[in-house]
């Protein structure tokens, strides 16, 4: 058993599951948005902001954002452990990735629930 403290679920199985489940959520969300755009060819700002004013859409979007965050972290963590062998560089990059994902997530919430 190889132990590692920086991965998300502390287990390969949970990471793997997170990546699969989040991928499904993102796929469904993407499909929804694409279909919505197709069925609303003359989309204006009011309709668009009306969609995002509804609570279910906000929850759905947040779920997609959280999935994106988890998916990105598992993926990028894997990339850093594959290619960045010096520990200092690897940990620094991992911290920057966490910071970026965190910032994007907070920003996303702010957009969804902000004014």
């Amino acid at each position: 058993m190889v132990t590692n403290v920086t991965n998300l679920g502390r287990s390969g199985l949970s990471d793997w599951l997170i990546q699969r489940v989040s991928a499904v959520v993102m796929a469904v969300y993407t499909l929804f948005i694409v279909l919505y755009l197709l069925f609303n060819p003359n989309l204006d700002y009011a309709t668009w902001s009306g969609l995002f004013a509804q609570t279910w859409m906000r929850i759905f979007s947040l779920l997609a954002f959280v999935s994106l965050a988890g998916h990105a972290w598992v993926g990028l963590w894997t990339v850093t452990t594959d290619y960045l062998k010096p520990t200092a560089i690897r940990v620094t990059v991992q911290l920057l990735v966490i910071l970026a994902i965190f910032a994007f997530l907070v920003w996303g919430i702010q957009i969804l629930w902000g004014a």
Partner: peptide, 12 residues
């Protein structure tokens, strides 16, 4: 199985 569930052994 418990020896294999970490992020590297199998899941890489």
């Amino acid at each position: 199985l418990s020896e294999l569930e970490d992020p590297f052994s199998v899941f890489r």
